[in-house]
Amino acid sequence: MFLDVRDLTITLKTGEEIAKDISFSIDGGEMLSIVGSSGAGKTTVCKAVMGLLSSNYSISGEVLYRGENLLHCSKKRLQAIYGKEICYIMQNPMTAFNPSLRIGRQLEKTCYLHNPQISRQELQLLVSNTLQQLGLDDLKRILKSYPDALSGGMLQRIMIAAALINQPTILVADEATTAIDACNRIELMQLLRQLCSGGMAILFVTHDLRAASMADRILIMNDGQLVEAGTTEQIFNEPKEEYTKYLLSACTLERR
């Protein structure tokens, strides 16, 4: 099992519980989606998995990566895992890039951080191949561009390229489709699906059940708790909980 989260509870120092007894697992070649409205706690769970929560939070439970509890790992060990084996895609691609550095330089730095022995020629080839894998062919222009010169959809793909460049085993995508239009959203989900077919595990967090429809399994989260879990077919065709039915009805209304 690539990732196994057991009884994860996240509490603010004030005593407020943000997430309670969250358990799920995901293996290679699988896409798991956590779905819930804003404030459900899904992004906080994401950040706990990625080790990104501040000291204002306390965490109990287990976050097992290939059997190793990340909550008990040393800082040095976590630095070797995050960004290399487990990578994170943020909601807004504009906040993921340094506006004062060209895209090519940023991708090279991302790769070099975890592969310091790589040669310049190998580095440039890896960057180019990764961008082309994501359907980005105008390489010369992209690599020389600053982030604000590129579209949101293109930046989203480049952000995925930055995550993929070190060939991770797990990709955590937090509201990765929110900042892009419907056409780019469909293309992005198809791309993530292709990555799964190559053996990667993807944890896809979203408020939009439509975006989650390409996942293998869906977890429904509300008010800090998992309220329903099942295959995508089960969630869409045989929902059990009223909150799940509410999310499905919201999708139906938006399509009209």
Rank of each mutant, 00 (worst) to 15 (best):
F2T: 03
D4F: 02
T9M: 09
I10D: 08
T11C: 08
T11H: 00
T14L: 02
G15C: 08
F24K: 14
I26L: 14
G29Y: 07
S33K: 07
S37A: 14
A40D: 05
G41M: 01
K42I: 06
T43R: 09
V45D: 04
C46V: 14
K47L: 15
A48S: 15
L64D: 05
Y65G: 02
R66M: 03
G67I: 05
E68K: 15
N69V: 01
N69G: 00
N69K: 06
H72Q: 13
C73L: 15
L78Y: 09
L78E: 07
K84N: 15
Y88G: 08
M90N: 00
F97C: 10
L107R: 12
Y112I: 15
E122H: 11
S128A: 10
L131I: 15
Q132A: 00
Y146R: 06
P147R: 13
M154N: 10
Q156V: 08
A161T: 13
L164R: 06
N166T: 14
Q167T: 11
P168N: 08
T169C: 14
E175M: 02
A176M: 13
T178V: 09
N184G: 01
Q190D: 08
D208C: 03
M221V: 09
L226W: 04
V227G: 00
T231K: 13
Q234G: 11
N237E: 14
T252S: 12
E254I: 12
